[in-house]
Amino acid sequence: MQSTEALVSVGLNHYLVLSALLFTIGSLGVLLRKNMIVILMSIELMLNAVNISFVAFATYLDNLDGKIMVLFVMTIAAAEAAVGLALAVNIFKNFREVNIRFFEHLRG
């Protein structure tokens, strides 16, 4: 049947669905977890999902630009992780807490 054909022979769609799933899981981590470090890790997960999407398109459209983009995303993700962790370390030093529940100082 055509549907099982679509299911078993992997195409661009599958990669994109995978990317969507990983992205969603990452965003749930951002939204639901209390620990600041885990939130940062979930952000990394989201960026990974985006990378999958880029590479999938690059492969299937025979375009190298997607892979270049992945390079950039990774670099930036690493940089962001470094800065974010530096900030987290600072916060931990000052407040002895990494629970974001305690950091609602910007309340209006």
């Binding site: 990974n48 892979k67 990774m74 690493a78």
Partner: peptide, 23 residues
């Protein structure tokens, strides 16, 4: 599987090897 060995390589080196070690 997506025929991007270079990307796979730097994924392991940068992400798994550097960023997460930092974490």
């Amino acid at each position: 599987t997506l025929n991007a060995p270079f990307i796979a390589g730097i994924q392991i080196i940068v992400y798994a090897g550097a960023v997460l070690v930092l974490f």
